[in-house]
């Protein structure tokens, strides 16, 4: 039986299984991925609805309730300034998600454009761009980020810039290798023959076809960016007090009073680990679903 769909002729009719059984198949094939997606969902919800979820003002010092252990009033206890740790964690999720999503989206999107353009134009432009990317990749991300912070200074916006820049070349390199294959497919030449401009071909014709590596890089970057923000904030070179940030919560008093008030350093670390864990599980599952080479395994 031949069914004609557009220009393609296939011998079989592919029937889409009902949504419910498809969901079930994904759940069975990717139990860890679903767990990751749930964690991601919780984190995003906490970030969006922080004012409604937090039980206390995260920046309010209460010197009558310093280093209070977890109890009914303060679910996860308080820090050395009497600030409620649960509320700071919830608001910290907002900081982490803001930095994480901004960096990942910016880094992978700029990388996508550079990678596709590099593959599309080829020649000297490509060679030159690849050498520049080589140079950037020779810097460990955190070192480059620290060097950028030296120049720009601390603060949320500068941290986003400092974390994004080292991500760009990584994405550009991966996208370029996929885009090189796309470049050879006749529709790109066809688009040229139709007289479309370079910008249109890069943006409308090539970029949508490298979505798989783009999405994989995007999800990988989410975890990396959250971890990088926590590291920079922990060093005192990232997000600044009094803004609640997980890395910041592990600084100073958290270590000083660790023995008598272990809840202060424990919970923010759990939050960071859980967030990065969730995003990585989710990203891994997505990679398995999107990469046909891995799917066969």
């Amino acid at each position: 039986m031949a069914v004609t769909t557009g220009a393609y002729v296939t011998d079989e009719v592919f029937e889409r299984p009902p949504l419910q059984s498809r969901m079930w198949a994904i759940l069975r094939a990717q139990p860890l991925g679903i767990a990751g997606a749930l964690i991601v969902l919780v984190m995003v919800m906490a970030a969006l609805f922080a004012p409604y979820i937090a039980s206390h003002d995260p920046e309010l010092n209460d010197f009558g309730a310093m280093l209070v252990p977890p109890d009914g009033g303060h679910w996860l206890g308080t820090d050395e300034f009497g600030r409620d740790i649960f509320s700071r964690l919830v608001w910290g999720a907002r900081t982490a998600m803001l930095v994480g999503f901004s960096c990942a989206l910016l880094g992978s999107t700029i990388g996508l454009l550079i990678g596709v353009a590099s593959a599309y134009f080829g020649g000297k432009f490509d060679i030159l761009l690849q050498r520049v990317i080589d140079i950037f990749i020779a810097f460990p991300a955190i070192i480059l980020a620290l060097a950028i912070v030296t120049v720009l200074g601390t603060g949320t916006q500068n941290v986003i810039i400092a974390i994004t820049i080292p991500l760009i070349p990584n994405c550009a390199r991966v996208v370029r290798s996929s885009a090189l294959a796309i470049r050879e497919i006749p529709y790109v030449d066809a688009a040229r023959a139709l007289g479309f401009g370079h910008a249109r071909i890069v943006l409308r014709h090539m970029a949508p076809n490298v979505m798989a590596p783009y999405l994989i890089m995007l999800t990988t970057f989410l975890g990396q960016a959250i971890l990088a923000e926590a590291s920079l904030s922990f060093l005192g070179l990232g997000v600044q007090e009094p803004i609640p940030a997980w890395g910041l919560m592990l600084q100073g008093g958290a270590q000083e009073y660790a023995e008598s008030a272990p809840w202060v350093p424990i919970f923010p670390g759990v939050a960071i680990s859980l967030a990065v864990f969730g995003f990585n599980l989710f990203g891994d599952a997505l990679r398995d679903l999107l990469d046909p080479k891995l799917r066969q395994q």
Partner: peptide, 25 residues
Amino acid sequence: RTFAIAGIAIPSFWLGIMIILGMLI
């Protein structure tokens, strides 16, 4: 695999704090 993914997720500086805290206790 879970141990490995956890290793990527757990910040080494926090693990350090936990090691120090664990040894103290």
